[in-house]
């Protein structure tokens, strides 16, 4: 009986080894390990054996059964893996073909610049304020120390709607409005981005509509050196740590002293080249210490409070930072232009 079992095992394992399909394995399993299979038959005839032989043969039979079953499982796994490999092989694609495009939009370059400026100043504790684009003559001019017959009004010819209403020529009225709202007894630290309008004929460097970001800080004991420090921090963060700034005296009716800020040319680092027209510096923004009359009109006592203000043009900054060569690009919405400035 023992020999019979060993012969069965040998015979079954040989068949497993030869099997090439899962079906073959299944029939081997049924024919050797099934209820009607030869091993079951052997076990059934055990009654004829002596009590000493019975456990020995029983153990052997179970071992044979187990060995065959293990081999069957192992072979099954092998065949399954082969089948999978074959299937996957058949599924091969050309991975170099282009992907299915997803619609990708993006912000306008001006928005990109304005938000970057906003975020830098927010980091320095500034709030962001907005105001109307159709402004009163009072807030646009008078509250900013530009009375009706002031010659400096010539500097910014404006689009009037009525004698008292006009399209704002700068975002400074938002500063006057905010100071008015704070009623002269609270510090103001704000920037105001927005659209502004001037009577200019559109060409490569002029646009009747453009963007401005202005900033204002009013508090007790604000110094001109604070203006220099804050603008320096902004310039380094926005344009790069290696850039230097320089302030030059200038004139605006709403600031005294007034300044213009240049940054060192990124091409020549101050040596002078064609980009900076030989000066080594590029003009970026204007600003100054808030004029005492502006403070006064907004209800702040200029003896107690002082402040600084500045304003810059995102179009100009974009033109400098990215080399945009025509201001009209910002308003024609040419897809080829807009696509260049995606935030990735």
């Amino acid at each position: 009986m023992k020999e019979r079992l060993q012969a069965l095992q040998q015979e079954a394992l040989a068949k497993v080894k030869e099997a090439t399909t899962l079906d073959e394995l299944q029939s081997i399993r049924v024919s050797y390990l099934g209820k009607k299979g030869p091993i079951t038959e052997v076990l059934r005839g055990m009654g004829k054996l002596s009590p000493e032989e019975r456990p020995v043969i029983g153990e052997l039979a179970n071992k044979v059964r187990e060995t065959i079953a293990n081999q069957l499982d192992e072979k099954k796994q092998q065949l399954e893996k082969l089948a999978l490999d074959k299937k996957l092989e058949a599924e091969t694609i050309d991975v170099t073909l282009p992907g299915r495009p997803v619609a990708v939009g993006g912000p306008h370059l001006l928005t990109h610049i304005v938000e970057e400026i906003e975020d830098l100043f927010i980091g320095m504790g500034f709030e962001v304020r907005e105001g109307p684009e159709v402004e009163t003559d009072y807030y646009n001019f008078e509250a900013l120390n530009l009375p009706k017959d002031h010659p400096a009004r010539d500097m910014q010819d404006s689009f009037y709607v009525t004698e008292e209403l006009l399209l704002r020529t700068h975002t400074s009225p938002v500063q006057a409005r905010t100071m008015g709202e704070y009623k002269g007894n609270k510090s103001v630290k704000m920037i105001c981005p927005g659209k502004v309008y001037r009577r200019d004929t559109d060409d490569a460097t002029h646009s009747h509509q453009f963007t401005q970001v202005e900033g204002l800080y009013v508090d007790k004991d604000v110094r001109m050196s604070d203006l220099k420090g804050v603008l320096n921090q902004f310039a380094k963060q926005f344009f790069g740590e290696e850039r230097e700034i320089r302030l030059r005296p200038s004139f605006f009716p709403f600031t005294e002293p007034s300044v213009e800020m240049d940054i060192s040319c990124k091409v020549c680092h101050g040596e002078g080249c064609s980009v900076c027209k030989g000066t080594g510096w590029i003009e970026i923004l204007g600003g100054g210490m808030v004029h005492p009359r502006v403070l006064e009109m907004a209800g702040y006592d200029p003896k107690e409070y002082s402040g600084f203000a500045f304003g810059m043009g995102p179009e100009r900054i974009a033109m400098l930072k990215y080399g945009v060569d025509d201001i009209r690009h910002f308003y024609t919405n040419d897809l080829r232009f807009l696509k260049q400035y995606h935030k990735a």
Binding site: G125, K189, D226, K228
Partner: peptide
Amino acid sequence: YDFLPYTLPQGAAQAGG
């Protein structure tokens, strides 16, 4: 103007946003 120092405002810190 070149000789003015660089300073940061001394006023109470404010949370921007």
